[in-house]
Amino acid sequence: MNAFNKALAATAGGLLIAANCFAQGPTSLVVPVENEPAPRLIVGQPLPGPLATGVAYIPYRVENLRILPVGGPHSKNVSPRIGHLHITVDDLPWAWADYGRSDTIILVNLPRGEHKVLIEAVDPEGGLLTSQTVKFNSPGKPAGR
């Protein structure tokens, strides 16, 4: 086969492959929520420097979940999955929701002693997806502050 015929055959083959790819249509990264990987919550220990002053900076990250201020029953089907955090300190009967995506929970004026912080990743309606608890000791707020 001469050089011209080889080039012509290669071009024709390339066009057939390209046409086949376009015929299949574009591929989407958005999949039905039930086919997405499960959300993961990774929580670290409070940073030691600020903790020495009675302030807990608790780093966290989420995987397979976007933290957004969205709610309602239809938002449970949004893909990629969305949700927010619920945070409870020392088993108190109340908690708060975090929609901030700051990747850090900050607690100030912690009294001296052991503390337990429950961090829950929840769906837009508050249904539990996953959770982690972090326990630590605070030296308390320094005198005079």
Rank of each mutant, 00 (worst) to 15 (best):
N2H: 03
N2M: 07
A3F: 10
F4T: 14
N5S: 10
G14I: 07
L15E: 08
I17P: 06
A19P: 07
N20Q: 10
C21A: 13
C21N: 12
A23H: 03
Q24E: 14
P26L: 04
P32C: 13
V33D: 06
A38M: 08
R40E: 12
P46V: 04
G49Y: 10
P50Y: 05
G54W: 05
V55R: 12
A56Q: 09
Y57Q: 13
I58S: 01
I58Y: 01
V62L: 15
V62P: 07
E63D: 13
N64S: 12
N64P: 08
L65G: 07
L68N: 01
P73T: 09
H74D: 13
K76P: 00
N77M: 14
V78K: 00
S79N: 05
R81F: 02
I87R: 09
D90A: 03
D91A: 11
P93N: 14
A97E: 14
D98P: 00
D98I: 03
I105W: 00
I105D: 00
I105R: 00
I106W: 03
L107N: 04
V108K: 15
L110V: 03
L110W: 11
R112I: 00
G113D: 06
E114V: 08
K116V: 04
K116I: 06
I119Q: 00
E120L: 01
E125A: 02
G126H: 06
T130A: 08
T130M: 00
S131T: 07
T133C: 09
V134I: 12
F136L: 09
F136K: 07
F136H: 05
P142G: 04
